[in-house]
Design a protein around this nucleic acid. Structure first.
Lengths: 243, 243
DNA sequence: CGAGGGTTTGACTTGAGTCAATTCTGGTGG
DNA sequence: CCACCAGAATTGACTCAAGTCAAACCCTCG
């Protein structure tokens, strides 16, 4: 474990063993560091945006807004995650991005990334893996909304987040710190904030998880996994071209 | 319009004007043609699969199955669509793929694709565009499930499908032929089949769309668009690196 | 001319939403 | 150190969209 490196390096390192040279390249990507205040949109839909970011610290969410005013959060980004990779490819962003907490992120020019890939092709594979994992998470999220009831959805969500945070050293099987409000959870899970509250109470009273004071604590990990059939294989696929 | 070419070429052609050389390359990709019977899984979860397909004719769906027996259809593939691009990158497929009708598809080896890209780099951009459009569709689908009610979901779904079919010459603003059953619609939209039926009746009685005898007919296109705030920009993004 | 999917419909149940009020908490300024 | 405030979390009472169950109906194809 390279606990002394960035969350990004740490995440990729869980996938391919990285050499010192590769680690150094990754660190170089973090040179253009920027900071964002909580709750002020970083990117909004339709905006012409040419750079992507790697989150160094803090939490971000990407969401779509409906004319009705309803909001659907597509995903949360935590340290080590890419942000707006799509908006680099396409001229305009197709969703909004908002920091939940104060966020430190490194701006990444497409060119820098490509240069790094040329020097160390294994990095390309690792980044591709990360992107594909993100896609798998969106699909799993889709299943949540389509075919799981509120309690299972919540359980699944909290477990997935836990697994992701653990990967970058921000959580354990005991629990993790989580700055999300019940409103944010509601917009991610397709529920009302009131119902989120009730579901959290149920889970707590059943001794499965508690989420209070910004801390998620797994009281009965196995029970929670069983409740929602959590299967983490989609999070730790073996990699492309890497056999 | 190159009506005499494959749906795949036609779809990419809507994005970049393709030269004769490029068109020829695309046609070559269709050399290894295979046929699949309806309802017999082409790929199942966990299977080690190394080839991708381009659908030439027929409809396919990719879905995930829950232990409870519930099913969530992630997307439908129609002629011109890629199938299992992800399962080529990763060793194992992470969802099931099933033909809805008899399907003709061309097997595409990763190598062939890469060779074509080397010869005509613009093709890479076009394929990347297509892949990214698919991703945007999944996100839109997520919004459907999370924040739209049954009627809006259905309207949005039928409109999106119409736009996709039109792109490959299989539909118009009047309507299109559609082999989906109400059970399939239910599994895609996160509803019960019974409710799908009721929603379709409502839409028909309101004179918006009718879906009967395997035909979707738009009775009031504008009204339908208004009902669900259909915004097709996510389907015809301008392309990457293509300004 | 059956048989078996697929489609419809009605009657009833229920998970989740809405509305509205109350409590808790962390941060602020005096 | 404390009163105060705004945002967040809770809770209860009521409503409603969508699900479930069960029974017809109806094409279409062998």
């Amino acid at each position: 474990m390279n606990t002394h490196h960035t969350p990004f390096a740490r995440k990729l390192g869980a996938f391919v063993a990285l050499s010192d040279i590769e680690l150094a390249l990754l660190d170089q990507l973090h040179s253009r560091r920027r900071s964002f205040a909580a709750r002020r949109d970083m990117v909004h839909e339709g905006q012409v945006e040419r750079s992507a970011y790697i989150v160094a610290s803090g939490w971000v969410c990407s969401y779509k807004l409906l004319p009705s005013g309803a909001r659907q959060i597509v995903d949360f980004q935590i340290p080590g995650d890419f942000l707006g990779l799509r908006s680099v490819l396409f001229r305009t962003a197709d969703h909004n991005i908002e920091p939940i907490t104060r966020v430190q992120a490194s701006e990444v020019q497409a060119r820098d990334l490509l240069d790094a890939f040329n020097t160390a092709p294994r990095l390309a594979a690792a980044v591709l893996w990360a992107a594909s994992r993100d896609e798998a998470m969106v699909v799993e999220h889709l299943v949540d909304l389509g075919r799981r009831d509120a309690k299972q959805r919540m359980a699944h969500f909290l477990l997935e987040l836990g697994a992701r945070l653990k990967l970058v050293g921000l959580g354990t099987n005991e629990g993790y710190a989580c700055p999300l409000t019940q409103y944010l959870l509601a917009d991610a899970l397709g529920l009302s904030a009131v119902h989120v509250n009730r579901v959290l109470r149920d889970l707590r009273e059943e001794g499965l998880v508690s989420f209070q004071q910004g801390k998620v604590i797994f009281e009965n990990f196995a029970g929670l996994v069983a409740l929602c059939d959590f299967d983490r294989t989609y999070l730790d696929h073996e990699g492309p071209l890497m056999r």
